[in-house]
Write a protein that binds this DNA or RNA. Structure first.
Length: 825
RNA sequence: GCGGAUGUGGCGGAAUUGGCAGACGCACCAGACUUAGGAUCUGGCGGGUAACACCGUGGGGGUUCGAGUCCCUUCAUCCGCACCA
């Protein structure tokens, strides 16, 4: 038998053993508490990168730890397999996206297996397979039937490079999230999911997620962007029409000195028609179209606008106010029109000053000038209403309520809540996605397929255009179909769904991945859902996590799920950095997991990554750190191998009596380590400190080796505990050493050790002695020493005597079991 | 501009409830073993000092017997949002 630590042999051996014995296969078991541990499934890009390794190493520690603690653990893995890169690769290399994708999946699965992660591979899924996307389409059908999927023409974000539209969330700083091309606005008919119907619930239920990082919840709150106010209409002079505005400050309505419409607003043309200003208005609106969203919304952009020549009537005081159009009012927020109150809104203030529009103060306070001419900026704070007729004297807050009440009573307007969140645009003009199950019938119009008519299969034999345009448009066998209602001629929708739709319900599918009639069985989901621990990158804080929450609430509403939130606890792991920046091909600082695992083994790779920093923080890659982890495993190997034979016959007694000081100290270390490692994993996910505690135990054991009267029972207990504690982190080497010690069964199926309270009891403890809060000496005393005796012992110390000589002792503070602090002046 | 996070040795990081700052690891230094060492083992390792004293958790101030930890203020870095009416 090989005496040296050979990770190649060991890791393959135990991976095969676990697989053959189906160790990680789980089924519902009502006898056991369940634990659903989930890592965000990867896009099959071709190769595992270090971010994946970190993600799955963290998840595996949790899964193995929970399993050893008696939980029935669901720990699945799958593939987020639809998406653009496959299609781009197809265009470039003339390989079909499905071939490219399947090859990548096979490769990455192989790499994943070398990591030795405790996945139940029987539950593997890929979103691009018909047996999966059939149910992605099912989701669409159900949303459609419930009025939550609809088609509308609107200005959408178009990425010219990807040749497709993007959801608002996928536009970052005016550019495409994926390819960074500048996004254009286009008027198109597109499919949307009505996520805005769930805005309030998505916001409120964040309160029920104490296990989520505050940062992520804040980001979601900002994204939902709830604001309370009111909507009211202002009649337009000379026209039988009115303009509707949204405001959060109806209390300032008497300070309105002009109105603004977004340049794209449909009323713009109507009201300026025939006016002298019409040409200028048209020119301005036209110029806005060519300005990109990016520059238009940049904070530095100066406010610009033109007068339309039209006037509106303020319904509160009958005043006639000019209507302008301006760049700073956006069509897709609120009603695309505002009432402008320059005295109390900074943007309106800047605009009014620039164009010499009157400014009227209607909120008075001690810290703002009463005269508009003296103002240097808008006053947005608290105060009382003035120049506001019957409302004068009201505080801002009561003024808001009073004006809304007045507007409602006089049918002028109504109190409303406005959200920043927009409906989710799910159409993509691409091939490699789940087809939207819709047909267009000449007679019946838009017809959504029924559940039993699914799936709408993606045709395999297609030709990819170099432009990126979807080949589906040209596949007649796909587009030409019959209407499911009337049987007449019909045309199929050629848009496919955003891949975020696929990933919004995959965690439900894992509960019953082979279910054929429904996306998942309710019984299985009732047992497993919600996910107890979700782990992944913070880059999904808004998109994926918001969409998944939306789907979960919808599925709850149609009685498919019993939970309203999919993920109880969320861990957002930090990035893996090299030379202080994210690993990327362009920077040339990529470390390949495959190479690391090949050279040092999966156990070393896992150990290094888990030890180098706590999971939420960024991790700086260090080749020397990897060496250190490898050396540690070699030390463990030698330590255990040294005792492997001699401890075999030793029995660990039920209780340890008459131990000498060294043996007691070792037992103390063993059991404090069990305690610390358990607490560090369970409560805080601080794997780095858990591992450092195990290292300390190994150091203590190494030092104990030299003792003349070594107690082998105590050593055996320590070694066994050490191996079991280390198992979630580095399972292969632990399994091997476990068997080298002639232990039965798998170490992965051992019970997590419990610490022995008896072993934690100490007779003597060290107390720190301070003078004025500064440590001057230490002293060993019996644990049960009285406060008086302890004070006396402390004062007797030579070094203390020196320091307090000639001083008066004002006070002595004793913190039991810890320290004595002498206050002397 | 708003919101959030972070700031500790040469480096990664510990210090969980206000109680020994720097656990553990890396790097480095010295020694042992050795034909050899990029293996292994032993010891050292914040600054400062002969040794103490003293100084030290981004900076300044405060509360406290005692502050990395609490409060005020300020700086730096990172992340998110940003004309949202």
């Amino acid at each position: 038998m090989n005496k040296k630590y050979d990770h190649h042999v060991i890791e393959r051996k135990w991976q095969e053993y676990w697989e053959e014995n189906q160790f990680f296969k789980v089924i519902e078991d009502p006898e056991k508490p369940k634990y659903y541990d989930l890592e965000m499934f990867p896009y099959p890009s071709g190769n595992l990168h270090m971010g994946h390794v970190r993600n799955y190493a963290i998840g595996d520690v949790v899964a193995r730890f929970k399993s050893m603690n008696g939980y029935n653990v669901l720990h699945p893995m799958g593939w987020d397999a639809f998406g653009l890169p496959a299609e781009n690769a197809a265009i470039k290399n003339a390989t079909h996206p499905s071939i490219w994708t399947n090859a990548n999946i096979a490769n990455m699965k192989q790499q994943l297996k070398t990591m030795g992660i405790s996945y139940d591979w029987d539950r593997e899924l890929a979103t691009c397979k018909p047996d999966y996307y059939k149910f992605t389409q099912w989701m669409f059908v159900k949303l459609y039937e419930n009025g939550l999927a609809y088609k509308k023409k609107s200005a959408v974000n178009w990425c010219p490079s990807c040749q497709t539209v993007l959801a608002n969330e996928q536009v970052v700083d005016g550019a495409c999230e994926r390819c960074e091309a500048e996004v254009e606005k286009k008027q198109l008919e597109q499919w949307f999911f009505k996520i805005t119907d769930y805005a309030q619930r998505l916001l409120d239920d964040l309160e029920q997620l104490p296990g989520w990082p505050e940062k992520v919840k804040t980001m979601q709150r900002n994204w939902i962007g709830r604001s309370e106010g009111c909507q009211f209409s202002m009649p337009i002079e000379g026209l039988n029409q009115s303009m509707t505005v949204f405001t959060t400050r109806p209390d300032t309505v008497f300070g309105v000195t002009y109105m603004v419409l977004a340049p794209e607003h449909p009323l713009v043309e109507v009201i300026s028609q025939g006016k002298a200003e019409a040409a200028a208005v048209k020119k301005f609106a036209g110029s806005m179209k060519s300005v990109s969203e990016l520059t238009r919304t940049a904070n530095e952009t100066e406010k610009e606008g033109v007068f339309t020549g039209a006037y509106a009537l303020n319904p509160m005081n009958g005043e006639r106010v000019p209507i302008w159009i301006a760049n700073y009012v956006l069509m897709d927020y609120g009603t695309g029109a505002i009432m402008a109150v320059p005295a109390h809104d900074q943007r309106d203030f800047e605009f009014a000053r620039k164009y010499d529009i009157p400014i009227r103060v209607v909120i008075k306070s001690t810290d703002s000038p009463a005269d508009a001419a003296e103002m240097t900026e808008a006053y947005t704070g608290d105060g009382v209403m003035v120049n506001s007729g019957a409302f004068d004297g009201l505080q801002v807050e009561e003024g808001i309520a009073a004006t809304i009440k007045h507007m409602e009573e006089h049918s002028i307007g109504v109190g409303t809540v406005n959200f920043r969140l927009r409906d989710w645009l799910i159409s993509r003009q691409r091939y490699w996605g789940a087809p939207i199950p819709i047909v267009y019938c000449e007679k019946c119009g838009i017809v959504c397929l029924k559940e039993d008519q699914l799936p709408v299969l993606l045709p395999e034999d297609v030709e990819f255009k170099p432009s990126g345009e979807s080949p589906l448009n040209y596949v007649e066998s796909f587009t030409r179909t019959t209407c499911p209602d009337c049987g007449g001629e019909a045309r199929r929708e050629t848009d496919t769904m955003d891949t975020f739709v696929c990933s919004s319900w995959y965690f439900d599918r894992y509960c019953s991945p082979h279910e054929e009639n429904l996306p998942f069985s309710k019984e299985a989901a009732d047992y497993w859902m919600p996910v107890d621990q979700y782990i992944g990158g913070v880059e999904h804080a808004i998109l994926h996590l918001m969409y998944a929450r939306f789907f979960t609430k919808f599925l709850y509403d149609i009685d498919m799920l019993s939970c309203q939130e999919p993920f109880i606890n969320l861990l957002t792991q930090g990035m893996v950095l090299k030379d202080s920046s994210k690993m990327s091909k362009s920077k040339g600082n990529v470390v390949s997991p495959e190479e690391i695992i090949n050279t040092y083994g999966a156990d070393t790779a896992r150990l290094f990554i888990l030890f180098a920093s706590p999971p939420e923080r960024d991790l700086e890659w260090s080749d020397q750190g990897v060496e250190g982890a490898y050396r540690f495993l070699n030390r463990i190997w030698r330590l255990v191998m040294e005792y492997a034979e001699s401890i075999q016959a030793i029995q660990i007694p039920d209780s340890f009596d008459n131990l000498d000081d060294d043996a007691r100290a070792l037992r103390f270390k063993t059991h404090t380590t069990i305690k610390k490692v358990s607490e560090d994993i369970e409560g805080r996910f601080n794997f780095n400190t858990a591992i450092s505690a195990i290292m300390e135990l190994s150091n203590t054991l190494n030092a104990y080796k030299d003792k003349e009267q070594a107690n082998l029972a105590v050593v055996k207990e320590a070694l066994q505990s050490l191996l079991v504690l280390l198992t979630p982190f580095t399972p292969h080497i632990c399994e091997e050493l476990w068997h080298r010690c002639q232990k039965e069964g798998s170490i992965c199926q051992q019970k997590w050790p419990k610490y022995d309270l008896q072993a934690l009891i100490q007779d003597e403890i060290e107390i720190v002695v301070q003078i004025m809060g500064k440590v001057r000496d230490r002293l060993w005393v019996p644990v049960d020493i009285s406060e008086e005796d302890l004070k006396a012992r402390a004062l007797e110390l030579e070094r203390i005597q020196e320091h307090i000589q000639g001083k008066k002792i004002a006070k002595i503070i004793v913190v039991p079991q810890k320290l004595v602090n002498i206050v002397a002046k």
